[in-house]
Computed example of a mutant assay.
Amino acid sequence: MRRPRFLGRFAVLTALSAALTTLLTVTPAQAASGSITGLAGKCVDVAGASSANGTAVQLYDCNGTGAQIWSNPGDGTLRALGKCLDIVDRSTADGATVQLWDCGGSSNQQWVVSGANDIVNPAANKCLDVTGNNSANGTRLQIWTCSGGANQKWSAPTSGGGGTPSRFVVTEGQFNQMFPGRNSFYTYSGLTAALSAYPGFANTGSDTVKKQEAAAFLANVNHETGGLVHIVEQNTANYPHYCDWGQPYGCPAGQAAYYGRGPIQLSWNFNYKAAGDALGIDLLNNPWLVQNDAAVAWKTGLWYWNTQNGPGTMTPHNAMVNQAGFGQTIRSINGSLECDGKNPAQVQSRVDAYNHFTSILGVSPGSNLYC
């Protein structure tokens, strides 16, 4: 069983690499409309062309009617017949069906059209999917864990306006203001490109919640890397300590190869294995990618933030989205060494950065800032 990785202290800075590969095609500012085609060349269709709340959304032969014309207005929604593509009962579970419903701005009506032709609901971090891989007319559409299968690939209208601007709530100017002395390795474009790995990050809930999550992530990254300065862990004496030979795969890159790297200081062989498996990158055999490839570095930081509890009880992503407070992100990242009065100066450093970054973004920091 993989043990949790407790991230490094500020005094023993581990550094980072930054920036990511898959480019996200996000809804820009202007609307576009058209059909959404998928499996067997069939269209996403509103059953019976009914605009009633709760009408099923299905796969059907393309016919050019209004029941198959979807607009992408740039607010994260997909709309037909004046209503929004909606996940039934706001479910995030595999198999939750989709329907038409009055647009209300809720997270179950938010969709990201990716450069890989997936249509992702960020709150569930799941893809629009044809049930049972069945191309028959009338097959209901649902959400399911993204697999890259043909039943999850869509040709959808992307809103106009030219280019594919980032949907990140932090502008490049704000990013530079947050990190005036950053290492040139950590580019803004690298970070925004990385967002497609975890489309729910800083893209779930209200605009306030999105900005709070972005500020929380960047504040913790700021603390871990000395303001996005360091790329690798500075205390080289620690390097041989991060190999757990008890793992069945051992440490094929060497005893001292799994030291802290990246925005959230990825370390230990089992974490390189887990992160690599999740991202589709062989980090167990080539951990140096995290310090040499900025894209890979940011991906590992987002992997931890979105999927790992660490010494806490929730992921940092869930802590912010569910409004548990910034303090719970500290607990999930380094709580065993900092929280419950163990190192209040380190906690204060993180909170100060968070307050500064939320101020730059013009948003309240919320409550429960300490752990």
Rank of each mutant, 00 (worst) to 15 (best):
G138K: 05
G138L: 12
T139H: 03
R140P: 02
R140D: 11
I143E: 03
W144M: 08
T145I: 07
T145M: 07
S147K: 10
S147G: 12
G148I: 11
A150S: 15
A150V: 13
A150I: 12
N151H: 14
N151P: 14
N151I: 08
Q152G: 07
Q152Y: 05
Q152K: 03
Q152I: 08
W154V: 07
W154K: 06
S155Y: 08
S155K: 12
S155H: 11
S155W: 06
A156M: 00
A156T: 02
T158F: 13
T158V: 15
S159R: 14
G160D: 13
G160F: 13
G161Q: 11
G162P: 00
G162Q: 11
G163W: 03
T164G: 05
P165W: 06
S166Q: 02
S166T: 11
F168C: 03
F168E: 02
V169R: 02
E172G: 04
E172M: 10
E172Q: 13
G173D: 01
G173P: 00
Q174Y: 06
Q174C: 12
F175Q: 00
F175A: 01
N176L: 11
N176W: 05
Q177S: 14
Q177D: 03
Q177M: 10
Q177L: 12
Q177P: 01
F179G: 02
F179A: 02
F179T: 01
P180E: 03
R182D: 01
N183V: 04
N183A: 06
N183I: 03
N183L: 05
S184M: 11
S184E: 12
S184A: 15
F185H: 13
Y186N: 15
Y186G: 15
T187H: 10
Y188V: 01
S189C: 08
S189T: 15
S189P: 03
G190I: 00
L191R: 01
T192Y: 06
T192R: 03
A193W: 09
A193E: 11
A194T: 10
A194M: 10
L195I: 04
L195R: 01
L195N: 00
S196N: 14
S196R: 09
Y198F: 15
Y198Q: 08
Y198H: 10
Y198N: 04
Y198A: 07
P199L: 08
G200W: 08
F201G: 00
F201D: 00
N203T: 05
G205T: 04
S206E: 13
V209Y: 10
V209C: 09
K210N: 07
K210M: 03
K211F: 03
E213Q: 15
A214I: 02
A215R: 00
A215K: 00
A216W: 02
F217H: 05
L218I: 08
N220A: 13
V221Q: 02
V221C: 09
N222M: 10
E224S: 09
T225L: 04
T225V: 05
G226F: 01
G226T: 04
G226I: 03
G227K: 06
G227P: 05
V229I: 14
V229H: 13
V229S: 14
V229Y: 13
H230I: 08
H230F: 13
H230S: 15
I231E: 15
V232H: 12
V232Y: 13
N235G: 08
N235T: 14
N235W: 10
N235R: 08
N235C: 11
